[in-house]
């Protein structure tokens, strides 16, 4: 088994390492590894107007998606957690499974059909793209937050706060939200990572001027290897930072929970 695990870690690291190496290689064509060292490719990516615009668009989309996830996903998760009846749970479970049962490609097709109509001519707009990202990440947010809420045992804390005289808004503000903030942070970082890399919906739904970074990145694959590597590494770096921070945040939360249980 350890052999498989090590082989797997190599498999995991190899494409990433090659991307890094390639992004600094002067020339890479028909050889095992590139030759020469250069920053040129990164400078070219940074200087490319369509990459610059896509990068900005992606950051705006990520920020919007995260904020909407909190504003909409947090109350929804709480309603599912506190509603807790069999039917509510089943409905919630179905909602979280829908994005797997309905591929992004089909959802994107549905967007094209519905939102290019005269009644709802939103196709290509920033807000429709943000709504798409929201729908794709909301199930993740809800699942993660409901699991954390259940595990924290919020009901007992809220009951305790009620007997001490706290009203519903006071209980939310003083007891419920403070216990959730690390799990909320970890969750938002994962949402950011998912949103920044989202390609399958954005590719069909974003307008020419509101293309996200991954959509523009695809065009780079047909050009110079070094440029494609550098452009990919930028995306890779952003996703990695967001995921790693999310993982570490969740770990801190986990440690606190273990401490509380002792």
């Amino acid at each position: 088994m350890p052999f498989v695990a090590i082989a797997y870690l190599i498999f995991l690291a190899a494409p990433v390492l090659l991307l890094f190496v390639g992004s600094f290689g002067e020339v890479w064509s028909g050889t095992l590894l590139p030759s020469g060292f250069t920053w040129r490719w990164y400078q070219e990516v940074a200087g490319d107007p369509s990459f610059r615009r896509a990068f900005t668009t992606s950051l705006k989309i990520v920020a919007t998606t995260c904020i909407l996830n909190i504003l909409i996903g947090l109350p929804l998760a709480y309603a599912i957690h506190a509603g807790a009846r069999g039917g509510v749970r089943l409905a919630a479970r179905i909602v979280t499974l829908m994005p797997i049962a309905v591929p992004e490609l089909v959802l994107a097709f549905g967007f094209i059909l519905v939102f290019s109509s005269d009644a709802l001519p939103w196709l290509g707009s920033f807000w429709l793209l943000a709504a798409g990202h929201l729908v794709l990440t909301l199930p993740y947010t809800v699942t993660a937050l409901v699991a954390d809420m259940d595990q924290l045992g919020l009901a007992e804390y809220e009951h305790a706060a009620a007997t001490l005289g706290a009203s519903f808004p006071a209980r939310m503000w003083d007891v419920t939200l403070p216990q959730l903030h690390t799990s909320l942070l970890s969750c938002m970082l994962t949402v950011a990572a998912l949103s920044i890399g989202e390609f399958q919906l954005s590719n069909l739904v974003s307008g020419f001027l509101s293309r996200t970074y991954p959509v523009v990145l695809l065009q780079a694959f047909y050009g110079a290897t070094g440029f494609a590597c550098a452009a990919t590494v930028v995306l890779l770096g952003l996703a990695m930072i967001a995921s790693l921070t999310s993982g570490l945040t969740a770990r801190v939360t986990g440690r606190r929970k273990v401490g509380a249980g002792a």
């Binding site: 995991l12 998912l194 920044i196 890399g197 995306l235």
Partner: peptide, 17 residues
Amino acid sequence: LPLTFSGLIVAYGFILL
């Protein structure tokens, strides 16, 4: 980590590999 990677990163990584 790969869970949040764009499919594009994987694709280009495998082209290189």
